[in-house]
Amino acid sequence: MNENETVMSQEYKDAITSLLFQLADDDFLYAYRGSEWLGLAPHIEEDVASSSISQDSMGHAAMFYKLLEDLGIGNADELAHSRPALDRKNSVLMERVNGEGYYMEIPLYDWAYQVVRSYFYTQAKKIKIDSLCESSYSPLADTAVKVKMELYYHRLHWETWFKQLLSSTDVAKKKMDEAIKKVMDDFYDVFSYGNEKLLIEKSRLISSEEILRDKWKASIEQVFTALQMEVPKISDKPTKNGRNGEHTHDLEEAIRTLSEVYKFDPIATW
C-alpha cells in the first residue's frame, strides 16, 4: 500500500502507527543519551564525531514523528514531548542512563557502555532500515533510504571503537565485557514488536522479529570471530518490554528533562 491509495484499513494504519512510534521513540531516546555525553567524551575529536551521530539520530526521530503527524496521529513536537512513559514504545535499552549521576552535575558515565549500546543498536537499526527500504508503506520506505545513508558512518564509527577497546588493555576489555553483558540483558525488545507483532508482520511493513534477529547475529559474527569471542546470546526472558509501554524510572526522568521547556507552555511557539 502507499500514500496514494485513498483507503487505508484501520488495521494497517494501527500497524504503521505502532511501528513508527517504536522507531521514533528509539531514536529520540538514543539521541538524548548521546547528547548527555556532549562535552564529556574521552577526547575532543570524539566529542565532535559522536555529537554528530546524536544529531543525526535526533533528525531520524524527527522524520519518524513527522510520518506519524502526516498520518494524523498528532503534532510531531507534541508526540515527542508530551507522551507519558506508559505510552512510549522505545526499547528499554534506549532509556537506560549512561551511568551514575545527572548530566549537569558530576556524571560518572561509562564509555564502554556507550560504545557497546551504540554499536549493537546501530547494527540493529541498520538491519531494520535495510528491511524498511522495502516496506509496503512507501513514505516509510523513502525515509528509510535517507536514514540508511547516514547510518553507514554511524555503524563504522562504533564498530571501530568496539574493536579497538576489545583489543587493547585488560582494564578496557573487562569494562567492555561488563558492558556487553549489561546491554544484552536489555536487548530482547530491540527486535520485539511487542503486542503488535502479528499486526506489524502481516502488514509487510518490515521483516519478522525472528528474521531480523538472525540477520543481526550474522552481521556481527565476523567481528566477534576476529576478536575470538562468541556472539552474545539475546535474552529471551526480558523483565520488561518497552514496546508494550513497560519502562524503568530512567525513562520518566528522561522525559522530564526532554520536555521541561516544552511543558512550560505547550501552546506557545518556541
Partner: peptide, 28 residues
C-alpha cells in the same frame, strides 16, 4: 549543553545540537 536536551521542539533540539557540536569542532 545544559539546554540541548531541554530545547522545546524537535527543530530547536536539532539546531542547538548542531551549534554545540560546531563549538567543540572550533575547540578542536
Amino acid at each position: 549543553k545544559e539546554w540541548v536536551p531541554k530545547a522545546p521542539s524537535l527543530n530547536r533540539k536539532l539546531g542547538i545540537m548542531a551549534k554545540v557540536q560546531d563549538e567543540m569542532g572550533h575547540g578542536q
